[in-house]
Design a binder for these strands. Structure first.
Length: 896
DNA sequence: GTAGGGTTAG
């Protein structure tokens, strides 16, 4: 069958077709076929390694019971990394073409198809064509061919007419059943699940639908729409009707579960049920089981592939692509590369899906250059890029800030006949927006509307996010107004973006109101929503920004209006009190007022409430939640130290309540944090080291956030030696890149606790150098704050400084990825530390982001008799059993 | 009856 469709086209439709009440909606979708590419031999240079590990999953670490006596997990859960997408687990791929390779249809059927798919033919004319060919079309074979092809061409309305036409003329029950199952399948593929159900019900009620084929088709139709419960309903129904599910029925239900993100254990039960009913799994069963592993179960995926081998089932390109997807989603890119080599060795040639899967993996792991080199490899192999691939390439270039290249890619894809879709435009909007190129954002947004690419909820979320982060609230509001006008339903991401905007502007209470509002609207908050608010409470967000009045939009719900009014009131209040607030903030630097102290305590309790609510809603906290809570505890510890009126015991109780909740994250993480805090370092150190190794597997931003948070809380609660050991483990694992040399210590990615612990370690190390008789460089420096101009020493003992002053000396950032401008806390902490220990460092005149010292001065100081003593750090608590707090049954002790 | 893409938190 010849294809007249252009090359380089995606087989994946850009969006889910709209549902309409009509049984067979008229929704024309341009159908495209995948370009068969020249499968030249894959020439990866990587050494091929077997992707199949031993069957054993018993890769458990040493046994360790947390203080709550929960068993240790063998790995950080996938959720914990904070990298798991909070989106729907699986994409819904409608409009995938159904191959119609059977030649059993007559030439007349092809003629009908040809005539029916001319652009000028409407539904009425199509009926006339069918009537004209009525005598020539032979039974269900011809009509099923027509139904499939009309489906492939995105013609649900004509398919509906054809089905009714055929089923009315067919006398045989079995043939009518075939027509029904084909029609259900066609509608399912088009995403018209209601139409599919209509056909199914009519067929069952009409006495020709009680076949395993119609039920399987219906299960599949539900599966494609992500309606797993409905699919299971049909699956159960077929059993009660006395129909025995066959291989296809089981495969369909497993696939439906995979698409909906059903837990592996549940799907495994279905698999077991299949075996016990004497139905042997085939390649497709395993391919679908592999898809269930996308929630992070990469080892299980590997085991399944092994099991396929044992059962003598060959792997195909679907097997490998799905396996690669699982592997890429857990960020194991080296393994992914090996698997790619393996598939080539087994003569399963990687295709465009293989490459886009792996490219996406590299991009998500932050290895953008590796991703780009995969495109080069595709080019060498003659594998044509399709729309998905082009969009991936575009997104990578935009992330790299290569705007010119990105625009060239747009031109290239157009030249190959691939139109920009909503994903392309969203990528452009986000890419330009994140770089503050708001003129381009405006242009692109206009352009997409001009070429009738309908903005979707992601478009609006992206725009609201970039405008809010840029402080362009009027523009954000305009976009929100347009969004409301478009009649789209807000989703969790859009709400989370709004909540974040409120939080970042100090309007945390309004953010909580909005959280309630979204919940009432039936939108379930996710871990990001909660992390946003927890983080804001933890920072004790000070309102430092002013916002213009926001005007409620027509059509806003009462909740939205009240939220906006609340924002306005808070904003006006801010403005009126701005001067007072500035003085107030200055005063706070010196001594904390009782009111603020109590507010801060309330915030701690709010976090506790939020955290418990998360638990209630079964929203699993991740490493970001963990860091935010530890940060809140550190902040609280600081306040307790400053405030003399609050009893230490009560304050510990408050912080304990919060910290205790950490076991909900992950018992092992909690166990390590708790053990270090309570001075049981010897007991937990082995577990700590294995935890650190696993954290290192996460991306550097996540890893450094983890180390910063953990070190901070240890430091603030007096476990300074523990903090130092942790920070050195981080250094050894390169969590902060190039942090340390003999002449320079770079602290700019560290939290204040981590930085102070590190300064002690660094000075001790230099001391050893001095005592060994080496000469120090002429100039020593440690850098704090947003010092992005670090130079390497030109030789071992000289640090070359750039005579450059930072734009704004107070723009210290708490960690590389913090989006909040801090208040110079790190600088103050280091300044205080250096003067406290008498180290002869001073702020560099030429660069206020650095403390510097002449080599001889430091040498002399290091050689002084008391210096060693002040440099050695100690923990306040080393004997937890001696602490009074331990006596309380329900609270975990905290040292101070 | 099976495979890949875009928005939010630190």
């Amino acid at each position: 069958m010849a294809s007249s469709t252009p090359p380089h086209c995606s087989i994946t439709a850009s969006s889910k077709p709209h549902k309409t009440p009509h049984p067979y909606p008229s929704h024309k979708t341009l159908q495209q076929q995948q370009q068969p590419h020249n499968n030249r031999r894959f020439t990866s240079q990587k050494v091929s390694a077997s992707p199949i590990p031993s069957n054993s999953l018993s890769n458990k670490g040493p046994t360790f019971l947390s203080p709550l006596q929960s068993p240790e997990k063998s790995h950080l859960s996938h959720d914990f990394s904070g990298k798991k997408s909070t989106r729907f687990v699986s994409k819904l791929h409608f409009n995938r073409q159904r191959s119609n390779l059977s030649n059993r249809h007559s030439p007349a059927a092809e003629d009908v198809l040809y005539q029916a798919t001319q652009s000028s033919i409407d539904d009425h004319q199509f009926e006339t064509i069918l009537l004209g060919f009525e005598g020539k079309l032979c039974g269900s074979e011809d009509y099923c061919f027509l139904l499939r092809e009309l489906g492939n061409r995105g013609e649900p309305s004509k398919a509906g007419l054809c089905y009714e036409f055929a089923v009315q003329r067919e006398r045989k029950v079995s043939e009518r059943g075939k027509l029904a199952s084909t029609m259900i399948s066609v509608m399912g593929r088009l995403g018209n699940v209601d139409s599919a159900r209509f056909v199914f019900d009519s067929a069952v009620n009409g006495g020709y639908g009680n076949t395993v084929y119609t039920y399987s088709a219906m299960i599949s139709a539900y599966g494609r729409s992500g309606l797993c419960q409905e699919a299971i309903g049909v699956f159960e129904m077929m059993k009660t009707q006395g129909l025995k599910p066959n291989l296809v029925s089981y495969n369909a239900i497993i696939d439906a579960c995979a698409k909906a993100g059903v837990k592996y254990e549940v799907v495994n039960d279905i698999y077991d049920d299949m075996l016990s009913n004497g139905v042997d799994p085939d390649r497709i069963t395993f391919n679908s089981m592999l898809a269930v592993c996308r929630c992070g179960l990469w080892e299980e995926a590997m085991r399944l592939v092994t099991e396929m081998g044992i059962r003598g089932i060959d792997q195909d390109v679907f097997t490998y692509n799905t396996l690669l997807d699982v592997i890429c989603k857990v960020g194991k890119m080296d393994l992914a590369f090996d698997i790619m080599s393996e598939m080539t060795a087994k003569n399963v040639m990687p295709n465009v899906v293989t490459y886009s899967t792996v490219i996406d993996g590299f991009a998500k792991a932050g290895r953008l250059e590796d991703a780009l080199s995969m495109f080069e490899e595709m080019k060498c192999l003659g594998i044509a890029l399709d729309r998905v691939c082009y969009n991936a390439l575009l997104s990578i270039l935009l992330k790299l800030g290569k705007f010119k290249d990105a625009l060239n890619v747009c031109k290239e894809m157009e030249s190959f006949g691939i139109r920009k879709d909503v994903v392309t435009y969203n990528a452009l909007l986000g890419g330009f927006g994140k770089q503050g190129k708001y003129d381009e954002v405006k242009q692109v947004f206009e352009q997409m509307k001009n070429v009738r690419i309908l903005p979707n909820v992601l478009t609006y979320s992206t725009l609201i996010d970039v405008y809010s982060k840029g402080g362009l609230y009027r523009e954000a509001m305009e976009v929100f107004r347009e969004f409301k006008g478009a009649g789209l339903k807000a989703d969790v991401v859009l709400y989370s973006g709004l909540i974040d905007a409120l939080c970042k502007n100090g309007l945390v209470k309004s953010a909580v109101l909005l959280l309630d509002e979204m919940t009432k609207e039936g939108i379930r908050p996710n871990v990001v929503t909660y992390n946003t608010i927890i983080d804001a409470f933890g920072r004790s967000a000070r309102a430092e920004y002013l916002v213009d009045d926001i005007v409620p939009v027509d059509g806003c719900s009462a909740g939205e209006t009240s939220m906006i009014l609340a924002c306005n009131a808070a904003a006006r209040n801010l403005e009126h009190n701005k001067v007072m607030k500035i003085f107030g903030q200055l005063a706070v630097e010196k001594s904390l007022s009782a009111r603020e102290f109590n507010e801060s305590r309330q915030e701690l309790l709010c976090i506790l409430g939020l955290f418990q609510k998360m638990h209630q809603l079964e929203i699993k906290p991740n490493v970001v939640t963990f860091s935010a809570i530890l940060n809140a505890c550190s902040y609280w510890a600081d306040k307790v130290l400053i405030n003399a009126t609050y009893s230490r015991c009560n304050s510990l109780e408050d912080a304990s309540m919060l910290l205790e909740e950490l076991h909900l994250f992950d018992d092992r993480v909690y166990g390590v944090a708790h053990g270090l805090l309570t001075g049981s370092r010897d007991t937990v150190w082995r577990q700590a080291l294995s935890l650190f190794d696993e954290v290192k597997q996460l991306d550097t931003a996540t890893a450094s956030a983890f180390y910063n948070a953990l070190t901070d809380v240890l430091w603030h609660f007096g476990q300074k030696r523990g903090a130092q050991l942790v920070v050195l483990e981080g250094k050894n694992r390169n969590v902060w890149e190039n942090v340390w040399s003999t002449s320079c210590l770079d602290l700019h990615l560290m939290s204040s606790g981590a930085a102070r612990a590190m300064v002690h370690a660094w000075l001790l190390s230099i001391r050893s150098v001095v005592l060994e008789g080496h000469e120090l460089p002429k100039l020593l420096s440690n850098t704090s704050g947003a010092c992005e101009y670090i130079d390497k020493a030109i030789d071992a003992f000289v640090l070359k400084l750039k005579p450059q002053i930072l734009d704004d000396e107070l723009r210290y950032r708490w960690g590389k990825h913090s989006k909040v401008v801090g208040d110079g806390a790190l600088k103050r902490a280091i300044e205080g530390l250096l003067s406290g220990i008498g180290a002869p460092f001073h702020l560099a005149e030429t660069n206020l982001g650095r403390f510097i010292s002449q080599g001889p001065a430091v040498t002399a100081w290091l050689k002084k008799s008391g210096t060693l003593q002040v440099l050695l750090l100690q923990d306040i608590t080393t004997q937890p059993e001696n602490r009074r707090l331990d006596q309380r049954p329900n609270l975990q002790p905290l040292p101070l």
